[in-house]
């Protein structure tokens, strides 16, 4: 769920940032666009880690295992699918 939300958020921010010219606003050695997306990505990763900790603390059983594996998959998915925010050009 967090991945789905985060993925939509990153894609939406990308569209809004490009339309709003955020990639032309210099900020702390990069651009407003880059910081906004990298910051969001980092927050999403932290959120996924928090969800993993919560799943870890759940009572033992099938639901715990399922929650834990799903949280791990969510974290991996956020890491991989969000990685383009540091790897690719912004709006080109």
């Amino acid at each position: 769920m967090l991945w789905a939300f985060g993925f939509s958020l990153l894609y939406a921010l990308h569209g809004i940032g490009c339309a709003g010219g955020w990639d032309e606003v210099a900020m702390a050695g990069a651009t407003l666009f880059r910081w906004a997306l990298v910051g969001t990505w980092c927050l999403l990763c932290l959120g996924a880690v928090a969800l993993m900790r919560r799943a870890w603390a759940a009572p033992a059983g099938f639901e715990r295992g399922l929650g834990l594996v799903s949280a791990l998959a969510g974290l991996a998915a956020i890491l991989v699918t969000g990685a383009p925010v540091v790897l690719t050009s912004a709006c080109a």
Partner: peptide, 24 residues
């Protein structure tokens, strides 16, 4: 639900957005 844009890779979408969907 995070793959749909890979059907639209040739529509001129910016590289970063392509990267999201390519990775997914």
């Amino acid at each position: 639900f995070g793959l749909w844009v890979h059907h639209m890779f040739a529509t001129g979408i910016p590289h970063m957005a392509l990267g999201f969907f390519s990775a997914a």
